[in-house]
Write a protein that binds this DNA or RNA. Structure first.
Lengths: 228, 228
DNA sequence: CGGTGTCTTGAACACAGTCAATCGGAGTGG
DNA sequence: CCACTCCGATTGACTGTGTTCAAGACACCG
């Protein structure tokens, strides 16, 4: 299977996105005076844990974050991957109801939640922006539910890879920051199944691989797998 | 299995909740002047379809609504059941990205979306209420994702029944407004599996039944199935 | 009553899970 | 530069949970 790397043109090592968000830009357009402080988390470092006070809001500057819940017997469900530009950590309640960890070394901007909410209270425009942001996340979650409830393993992995490719911002070759375990825990599968399906997709010509974590999708074939 | 109805005290036919929301009450506390118009939908009647213009917002006065997406090959995923008091139909985009149908005869209040948004634009308090409503729905969706991704059929059905019991507002005997197909399409299972699991839960003493749609949970046993 | 839609039950099957061995690549130290 | 280790990924053989297909039971309604 390592042949894929030989058959395909040499994949460029990620040059980083051409445009990366300036860390000093405001988190939301309608709150220019809301400023955060930069922070860095190492691989596998917890950013916040379930039950902890939710007093900070985060925006990813570079790297990747997973937010997840765990059942008492250890089963883990990853709710979302947060990539460059994504905002996470917002809650209704005083405490976090899920945990968040850096997947790789990750730079974030941190904003105080109280300030956030105080400004929103008096700024309808900001509050509307927050509202519509939450609604967009809700739509995304619904797609996630559809994926878990009514899609086969093949379809789940194909949809996942297509989404990550799109969000990575780079057409062509892209890198998966997360492990097979992360993917499995996001898609409600096991690592073995994820691995088998990726191999199958490669065999069907839906993707090319360079190692386990770099790949290039054949969009037409992927779309064919997904149907709609 | 019909013995359950004999073994247990005769279940009262639903007397309806003691307190039902007055249809003329404002949809949200911070928008007292936002008034809607009442409307009634019959069993299986579509309230809105995927792709239609999302220009109305709804609140359930009585009855039950399912909102769902369908794949091109007919697989259906129910995203949510809306019961008395619930608000649904809010969207970020101009068009609905899912469909909604009345499950039984359902009375709703209908509010114009434009008016809704216009008021929110100038009323930070309302906008914040909408924001926090969306965040609460987001939390609920995350629980749904955990259910579909990492829970067994037994756990899914138990959690589902517990939630409906809670939301029905009546402790003790309660009615399921939805069919086995609806439950299956919400939980990512088949009707046969739902049926078998309900039978199993009954055999384990986790619930009593009066016909297929009325039951009474033994909370301790249900909690035991769920662990956390 | 008969008819229809819904629910239940059974038997066979399939997809994804489990258990276990092996592979591969990155990092480390001799 | 190579050997060694560690962790993640892959692959294989087998198992099991939930699906599929099919038959029947039940309940509601004319």
């Amino acid at each position: 299977m390592a042949l894929a790397a030989i058959r395909s043109p040499i994949p460029p090592v990620s040059p980083g996105p051409a445009i990366r968000p300036r860390p000093d830009l405001p988190i939301l357009a309608s709150a220019p005076d809301l400023s955060g402080s930069p922070s860095v988390y190492g691989r596998k470092q917890e950013i916040f844990g379930e039950g902890e006070e939710a007093d900070r809001v985060y925006r990813v500057v570079s790297g990747a974050v997973r937010s997840y819940s765990v059942l008492s017997d250890g089963r883990r469900q990853i709710n979302a991957f947060h990539l460059r530009g994504d905002i996470f950590g917002l809650e209704t309640r005083p405490a976090h109801h899920q945990s968040a960890e850096a997947i790789v070394e990750t730079r974030v901007m941190v904003y105080p939640r109280r300030q956030f909410e105080a400004i929103a209270q008096g700024n309808a425009h900001l509050a509307c922006e927050l509202w519509s942001m939450a609604l967009r996340q809700l739509e995304h979650k619904q797609a996630h539910v559809l994926l878990l409830g009514r899609r086969s393993a093949l379809e789940r992995v194909a949809a996942f890879l297509a989404e990550i490719e799109r969000r990575s911002g780079e057409a062509g070759w892209f890198a998966l920051p997360m492990t097979r375990r992360d993917i499995a825990d996001y898609l409600g599968l096991t690592i073995e199944t994820v691995s088998r399906v990726v191999t199958q997709l490669e065999a069907e010509g839906a993707l090319l691989r360079a190692g386990a974590r770099r790949m290039r999708l054949c969009r037409a074939t992927i779309r064919q797998v997904l149907c709609d």
